[in-house]
Design a protein around this nucleic acid. Structure first.
Ligand code: MN
Ligand code: MN
Ligand code: MN
Ligand code: MN
Lengths: 222, 222
DNA sequence: AACTATATTTTGAATTATCAAAAGGATGTG
DNA sequence: CACATCCTTTTGATAATTCAAAATATAGTT
């Protein structure tokens, strides 16, 4: 049986693997991401391997099987459609929907999700700019770069805000750093670890490296 | 910690107790309602008693404490608001929402529920005519009677359809037996165990006793 | 009072998910 | 190569929830 614990592990494995594709995901990394002690992750990974969801190479790490990846994409779809629904239909703030979706993603049926998806007119991205996999498990791969990779004068559009921390999301919103917003890089000071961008005439924001890395934009000039 | 298992037991204890108020609810009845073997119910009831949610009198039965009743009403509220939401906002059929709500009732936060309640304009009854407890745990007590208690010529309004079985609900809908619908009792034949009602000019429905008992109407003439 | 049928509780075992702490393996430095 | 360090795995326990089957209590009936 696929429990919500399994869904959470598989989803996390998928997300962690995205960070460093091609390499096996080490157990320690998974344990940390799941907030469990390493032994717990090892035990769970064995049952995931028995279920054919991951390939497990002891003392090196794991990788999702095709089935595991499909499951991850389904859970991710539920999560992101739910986030969109909570923002668009119920009017919650984009900073609080991640936590809500974290629980609901294990409780909504395919039928209910389909209705939400329809009501939202089949959104392709969630409120944070993350792509929503289709019901068949296809996900858009778009090449995005963090603000820290732009050169002065480069004009583009914010595509994604890559942090689920409510405090950061509230900060981003207050400063107009939302997906879809146009921006131009003014300057980047390596030494000061800072990036300054202009959103509209007269509105500029300065971010430190850590924050700037979480704001992802399209490569092509928007 | 209040698990979904606990919520399901407490809700069921409340519902079963409503059937025969004043008396203790026997363990066998609870076990049957929860679809578990009697020993399982006994074990769970002991932990519920330890948590102060029920009073347990071995070999006689149980009753909810005040705290237990409040919890039951909160779960019931979530269940019924969700059912309303699924029907009104997502357009699911009234025959399928009970099952969906059975899972979602353990996953929605107070905040999300409040938004749904607001969007629905604070409904007082769910799609089946069951009263929705307020956030503070108040529930409307309305005296309803089954069709089998009406006398010929009595005109009234359907208030509640007391069965969650999708097949019965679909049957009821197809025959216009929905909450809010006006009806007049034409005749009742004790011997034939049948009840005939008129919904509108020319539209009459005949039901056997079992089915007629599930259609509840207001006492006062509607 | 004795017997029988029914309801309830106890016992023993399984499953899932977790932690703490001990044990074992891999790797890089000197 | 030997050792220290850092991972990872193993072991032993615990909590929650369940079932099957044995044991026990209650109530109803001769
Ligand atoms: Mn989750
Ligand atoms: Mn998101
Ligand atoms: Mn439930
Ligand atoms: Mn209902």
């Amino acid at each position: 049986m696929i429990t919500s614990t399994i869904e959470n592990y598989i989803k996390q494995i998928y997300l962690q693997q995205q960070e460093n594709k091609s390499k096996l995901l080490p157990m320690g990394r998974l344990a940390a991401a799941m907030h469990v002690v390493p032994g717990t992750a090892t035990a769970m990974v064995k049952t995931l391997a028995d279920s054919g969801l991951v390939e497990y190479e002891p003392r090196s790490g794991i990788r999702l099987t095709h089935g595991g990846e499909q499951l991850a994409l389904h859970v991710l779809r539920r999560h992101r459609v739910l986030e969109s629904f909570l923002v668009e239909v119920l009017g919650l703030d984009w900073s609080e929907v991640h936590e809500e979706a974290e629980t609901l993603e294990h409780a909504v049926s395919d039928k209910v999700l389909e209705r939400m998806d329809l009501l939202l007119n089949r959104p392709q991205f969630d409120p944070h700019g993350d792509p929503i996999p289709t019901a068949k498990g296809q996900i858009k791969k778009i090449r995005l770069v963090p603000l820290t990779d732009l050169k002065p004068g480069h004009a583009t559009i914010i595509a994604r805000v890559a942090d689920q921390d409510p405090a950061f999301l509230q900060f981003a919103e207050k400063n107009g750093l939302l997906p879809g917003v146009a921006l131009t890089l003014i300057e980047r000071d390596e030494q000061a670890d800072s990036v300054q961008v202009r959103l509209q005439e007269k509105i500029t924001v300065t971010l430190g490296g850590k924050a700037a890395e979480k704001i992802l934009v399209r490569m092509a000039t928007g």
